[in-house]
Simulated assay, not measured.
Amino acid sequence: MSGPEPRPWRSLLFVPGARPDRFEKAASAGADLVCIDLEDAVAPGGKDEARRATLDFLARYEGEATVGLRVNAVGSDVGAADLEALKGATGVRFVMVPKPTGTGELDAVAAAYDAPMLIPVMETARAIQTAGAIADHPAVVAGVYGAIDLAADIGCTLDWEAQLYARSACALAFGAARKVLFDVPYLDVKDPEGLKAETRRAKTLGIHARAAIHPAQLGPIHEALAPTPDEVARAQRIVDAFEAAEGGVALLDGKMIELPVIKSARRVLALAAPRA
């Protein structure tokens, strides 16, 4: 158990596929992932144009950001056109898959996309019911909890209590798979305090990342997810005590340090590590 934990993803910024003038700005905004959205953010008549602009941008993009795209629903005509275009595409770092009902849609995208890194959006009742299988899919690298479409699918509200079961089920599934789950974007761009409060609330469930719809939301998200100075100090003491034991029994303040505690401490230090 030597060496630092990799720094986990904390934020994913959506940018409309119909706004190629915003692609470069979004890529430099400071999000850990950037997703160009070909689904919800593009009107039906603009799908072909948005797809061409997106794939052209990704093919020539040379920046350091991890940029991918969200395709349209697998099984739809426009989704089929997206998958056909992906077969010859370059520079696509990941593909977000909307409205999966199981692993079949993931298999279809992975078959079309040469370097599978898939991010399913958990926004259907069937996706919640099969969350474990979706999270365990070998091409899946992360997930997004999609409260808004889920509410429309089953007729529930967006209230915290109404979403608690599904949100927790996804947190458990992706946590068990050791993959990141991004919480649903916070819709009120002008309410950073509300964004931080809700992000911290989701963090208590084990959701340590969040999607955003505007660059201004990235700072509040990162702030809400960052460990406190006291948490960082304690985590460092735990790791130091473990390493000083050199394989023997590690003690801190007279108490034995168990391996799950070490793992949690390393996660805290990874979250607190400076980022380029």
Score class of each variant (00 low, 15 high):
S168R: 11
G143E: 08
D136P: 02
A135Q: 12
V180Y: 03
V140C: 07
R167H: 08
P138T: 13
Y145E: 02
A171T: 11
A166K: 00
G143K: 07
K179T: 14
A131E: 05
A139H: 06
L164E: 11
R167Y: 04
D149Q: 01
A142P: 07
V180F: 05
I148Y: 00
A139D: 09
I154C: 05
Y145M: 15
A147M: 01
L181F: 07
A135L: 13
T157S: 15
Q163E: 11
L164D: 05
V140D: 07
A173H: 11
L181D: 09
A171G: 08
A139L: 09
G175R: 09
W160S: 10
L172Q: 11
D153L: 03
I154S: 01
A169P: 01
E161H: 08
A173D: 13
T157E: 03
A176K: 13
A169E: 14
W160Q: 11
A171L: 09
G132L: 07
D159F: 02
L164P: 01
G155H: 03
V141N: 06
A151W: 00
A152Q: 07
V141T: 15
L150Q: 04
A169V: 15
S168D: 09
C170G: 11
C170A: 14
D136S: 15
A166Y: 01
A176H: 12
G175T: 11
A131D: 05
G132H: 13
R178G: 12
H137L: 13
A142Y: 06
T157W: 02
V141I: 15
A139F: 06
G175V: 10
A131Y: 02
A133M: 10
L172R: 13
A131S: 14
P138W: 11
V140G: 06
I148T: 07
I134W: 01
A131T: 10
V144A: 07
L150R: 03
L164F: 11
V180K: 12
G155M: 04
P138D: 11
A131F: 03
A169K: 15
V140A: 08
L150W: 03
V180E: 14
D136N: 14
G175S: 10
L158Y: 00
Y145G: 01
W160A: 14
L181P: 03
L172H: 08
T157V: 04
A166E: 02
C170K: 10
H137S: 13
A173R: 10
V180L: 09
D153S: 08
A142M: 12
D149N: 07
A133V: 06
D136T: 10
F174Q: 07
L172Y: 09
